[in-house]
Design a protein around this nucleic acid. Structure first.
Lengths: 184, 184
DNA sequence: TAGCCCATGTAAGGAGTTACATGATTAG
DNA sequence: CTAATCATGTAACTCCTTACATGGGCTA
């Protein structure tokens, strides 16, 4: 078995699950949408695709369209879809929250299309719980250490806390949105 | 001339500017404070210190305390302090905002101690302006593309926007705090 | 025919990760 | 005496970055 894909790998796998693409198409997604902070450089995308193909998670076919340059279109293999699902369905750990919410949001972005609305709701509930327990520990840290820190340091930490609180508030809105969508 | 330090390099430089430390001390900072998402692994810290020393930004002295293992204490050279100041004082670009606010917050955390409150206020004003112009472009993107996106994708993007808005609100609070502090 | 977009790649190098290695000192 | 903590480091590996290379097809 090959090593687990990186975030970039999962991002590509998720996009390919939505619709089969060439490397160039995927680069355009990263270049033109503000959703993720991935690089659109060929030196990142093409090697990542090769790794995914080598690991058996995607498969590429050369498409020969008349009068256009050949492009290689990739789609997930059954194993790739499985790997994606298992990544998306993983329970949220404290570590995920500390490492940054970007990785979690990447997962969430693909969630209801691949695993269904139920899973998205589960994800939001887990994230909500994790944030509700994490924010107070940060506030506590700020309270006890504030004296040793310069004003800008305190404010920088507070900015992080406000970011987490905004995400917490967002989980509630998102849950409400799913409940409303479920009623239709 | 050596290549510019990485974020980790600047983080170490900033901490050393506040007070001279050994590699072990620096590792503890990363391990025990939730402020930054840097790794505390020796395989990251010690090579980074060596690079900084090699580039002439820091200098280390072996401290021989009786009955304790030798430790090597680093402090910035004049060139290192200059490099830190020039990094901290750099104007905020749109790219900085897109790449993620963590890098900007790292800069801000050291700002008023190294460059003074005036610079911190300048920084906050610039960030405020950049965010006020960035948030609407994201909202616009969400508005025009929402139809092509699954609910979870829309919500993931919205979570990013709310994060930026929280930061925007934070800049106002922080500016107010500096104004209040200036009056004393 | 010059320049631009499509489309795919490689090469060299930098930096971080995990895991391992080592040795001194202190606490139980 | 053993385990934990202090303290520094290296080795192998992976992945990303920047820059370069190539070549087809379209448009002015």
């Amino acid at each position: 078995m090959k090593a687990e894909p990186t975030f970039l790998g999962y991002a590509l796998l998720g996009l390919l699950e939505q619709n089969p693409c060439s490397g160039y198409d995927l680069r355009k997604v990263f270049a033109l949408t503000p959703m993720m902070a991935f690089s659109d450089s060929p030196g990142a995308i093409y090697p990542a695709l090769r790794r995914l193909e080598h690991g058996g998670w995607i498969r590429g076919w050369v498409e020969n369209r008349a009068g256009l340059r050949r492009r290689k279109v990739f789609r997930p293999t059954p194993a790739g879809t499985e790997a994606l699902k298992s990544w998306l369905g993983r329970p949220i750990s404290r570590d995920d929250v500390i490492r940054g919410l970007d990785g979690l949001m990447l997962r969430f972005a693909f969630l209801d299309l691949v695993l269904g609305k139920e899973s998205a709701v589960q994800f939001l509930k887990q994230l909500n719980k994790e944030l509700r327990s994490h924010v107070p520990t940060l506030r506590e840290f700020l309270r006890t250490r504030a004296n040793d820190m310069p004003l800008s340091g305190r404010l920088a930490l507070e900015s992080g806390i406000l970011g987490y609180e905004a995400q917490l508030e967002w989980t509630n809105q998102a849950l409400a949105r799913y409940r409303r969508a479920g009623k239709d």
